[in-house]
């Protein structure tokens, strides 16, 4: 443990209002902590600049999974285990179940939260591609009130978010797919568990009259942020499922990515494999 504990402070928020008041009173000073599965790793290694932490884990206001109109609303503190176990999530969002299931292993899934996975803003996080594919929306809360932001506009750059210092992610709202639709999730991470994604692709599509009527693709680990594959989507939308322009979509996908070389994989590997996974997804879509 390399952090210098005496320099650190941890405040436990009893209510959401208390938490927001503290964040507003000293903007940028307090780092929220929930499951701790990302933050504690960096803290233990002595590489965390932050020293003051605001514990949100007891805020009932940020918990729970509930139906809300056409959406399923996830409290930001919803754990991966809760995502895995909730019947409504299984029914509507199989990709979310899959992405929660491959996030670390059980001990991580019991503690890590959906909100934390979002605001940690790692491009390699496992649930964001699924949230992008499902067109999720975030509800942010501050003493100034609540506002909503489309998730695919939330990440602005590496670790940069549309999130003010006094704001917290309160809920994640995911619209329930209507009718029969196609869900695809694949994470590539060398080993089968306890892996960090080198490539991740989630897709959600709806086919109408043999034509691809709706498609969203979320990508992980191939850009500074979890990213929509808008170029590839545009190439494919409106095309007949029986004759999808796979080569064109693969080419367009290159414009959706800006992968880098790092200790986990090469940029080239990420690029080729993301294209291959897209092809795999399209094969499955064509035979679905």
């Amino acid at each position: 443990m390399r952090a210098y504990l005496p320099d650190c402070d941890l405040r436990v928020a009893a209510t959401l209002d208390d938490a927001l008041a503290l964040l507003a009173a000293e903007p940028g000073v307090w780092t929220p902590i929930a499951g701790g599965t990302d933050l504690m790793v960096v803290h233990n290694a002595g590489r965390l600049k932050a020293t003051r932490f605001l514990d949100l884990s007891r805020l009932a206001e940020l918990r729970g999974i509930a139906e809300e109109g056409d959406c399923l609303a996830f409290g930001a503190l919803t754990s991966f285990t809760e995502v895995r176990e909730h019947p409504a999530v299984h029914r509507h969002f199989p990709n979310l179940v899959k992405s929660a299931r491959v996030t670390g292993a059980l001990a991580i899934q019991n503690r890590g939260t959906l909100g934390g996975n979002i605001v940690n803003a790692s491009p390699a996080a496992d649930t964001p591609p699924s949230l992008l594919a499902y067109g999720a929306e975030l509800e942010l809360v501050s003493p100034r009130g609540r506002r909503r932001v489309a998730y695919d506009h939330f990440h602005l750059g590496y670790k940069q978010m549309d999130l003010a210092p006094d704001e917290l992610v309160a809920r994640i709202l995911v619209p329930k797919p209507q009718g029969h639709s196609f869900h695809y999730f694949r994470k590539v991470g060398t080993r089968q568990a306890q892996a960090i994604a080198k490539v991740c692709l989630a897709a959600h599509a709806r086919v109408q009259d043999g034509v691809l009527a709706e498609l969203r693709i979320g990508l992980g680990s191939v850009a500074p942020v979890p990213a929509r594959a808008r170029h590839a989507e545009a190439t494919l939308l409106g095309q007949p499922v029986a004759a999808l322009p796979v080569a064109a979509a693969r080419a367009a996908l290159l414009d959706d990515m800006s992968p880098i070389d790092d200790i986990r994989a090469s940029a080239h590997y990420r690029s080729v494999v993301t294209q291959n996974v897209l092809s795999h997804m399209l094969r499955e879509l064509a035979t679905a």
Binding site: V12, T37, V41, L106, N110
Partner: peptide, 14 residues
């Protein structure tokens, strides 16, 4: 529930 105790701050298990 199983947890990694190296990632759990004391105040959270009060």
């Amino acid at each position: 529930r199983v947890v990694n105790s190296c990632l759990v701050p004391a105040a959270q298990v009060q």
